[in-house]
């Protein structure tokens, strides 16, 4: 099935639904990785469409860094209820308390990397054989080669050198015991596609995505929100600005942008004209030019 003249959003939607149904058909115990961010919201939205009138046949799983914006968490709970989905939450704090991981120290400390261990532990604990994610290939260069059905070895690692060929829409989800898959139904979407779809479908979003007043510190050109989790440095200057977030991850490393976009329509116009990628606002990607590839090899989302 290739293209028709129906326009790009219905085609992307149909492809996403097809992928989610393949997941349900090919795997025993899937879970949808849900952060409360717009991409995972869109995946959950597609999942509800894929299985209607039945319930979504797998739970939403949130790996909570403990550093989330409180409004994201409230939204997460409401959204899961509205979608009639089961929500499971696993805490990075638990992994720290169990000594499975060590908290980073210093001003740039982030719990982003620690999520990997909590996620892999949750996969083992819940007996998951596939985790569905909202990653897109346009986000970062390492993702451009990743398959829609992406194989993970027994250690949860991705081997970019040894990926299975993926042809037509024949997805191969076969695996050996202990291995699992990550599946990315939004692989072929761009940030603009996501926003256009949210607009066309009137999908609810956390308020963080829209322009609001907030206390901000500026570091390395990035605007970080002052929260209880961000350690302030003596050199930091705090100011109140009108900002919004383009991603809503860990509050300590997710940068805001100055913006007055207060509706989805405003955001689409802003996105179409944007000159910085959304990951460009993330401190963890700035650590090295291939930071994402290195994390993914270790089992990151």
């Amino acid at each position: 099935m290739h293209t028709s003249s129906r326009g790009h959003l219905p085609q992307l939607e149909s492809e996403g639904i097809l992928i989610l149904r393949e997941v349900a058909a090919q795997f025993e115990r899937p879970a949808l990785l849900f952060s409360g961010g717009k991409d995972s919201i869109v995946v959950a939205w597609l999942a509800r469409k894929a299985f209607a009138p039945a319930r979504v046949p797998f739970p939403l799983l949130h790996i909570d860094t403990g550093h989330n914006f409180p409004e994201t968490l409230r939204f997460r709970d409401d959204f899961a209820r509205t979608m009639d989905c089961t929500l499971l939450v696993r805490q990075v704090q638990d992994s720290i308390d169990q000594g499975r991981v060590q908290e980073e120290t210093g001003a740039a400390a982030s719990r982003n990397a620690l999520q990997t261990t909590t996620l892999l532990d949750a996969i083992k604990e819940l007996g998951l054989d596939v985790a569905i994610g909202g990653a897109r290939r346009d986000e970062e260069k390492a993702r451009a080669t990743e398959r829609i059905f992406s194989h993970r070895d027994v250690f949860g690692q991705w081997d970019p050198r040894n990926q299975r060929p993926e042809l037509w829409n024949l997805y191969n989800g076969r695996k050996n015991h202990g291995e699992h898959f990550r599946v990315f139904p939004l692989s072929n979407w761009t940030e603009l596609d996501i926003w256009q779809y949210i607009s066309a479908e009137d999908i609810p979003l956390p308020g963080l995505y829209f322009a609001h007043q907030r206390e901000i510190v500026e570091r390395d050109g990035m605007l970080l929100a002052t929260t209880e989790h961000l350690r302030l440095d003596p050199s930091d200057t705090v100011s109140t600005r009108t900002v919004r977030f383009r991603t809503v991850g860990d509050a300590t490393c997710t940068g805001a942008v100055e913006s007055s976009a207060s509706t989805v329509a405003d955001i689409i116009i802003e996105t179409a004209a944007a000159r910085i990628t959304e990951r460009g606002g993330r401190a963890d990607d700035k650590r090295s030019d291939t930071a994402m590839e290195d994390r993914k090899r270790q089992g990151y989302f």
């Binding site: 326009g7 009137d202 329509a265 179409a272």
Partner: peptide, 28 residues
């Protein structure tokens, strides 16, 4: 796509205004 819309309706605006492009197709 649903035909009903809620508050924040962008219906009536031109594609340029909303940034959405209803007739845009897809070439692989």
């Amino acid at each position: 796509m649903p035909s009903t819309r809620q508050p924040g309706d962008t219906r009536g605006e031109t594609p340029e205004q909303t940034g959405s492009a209803p007739m845009m197709d897809l070439l692989r």
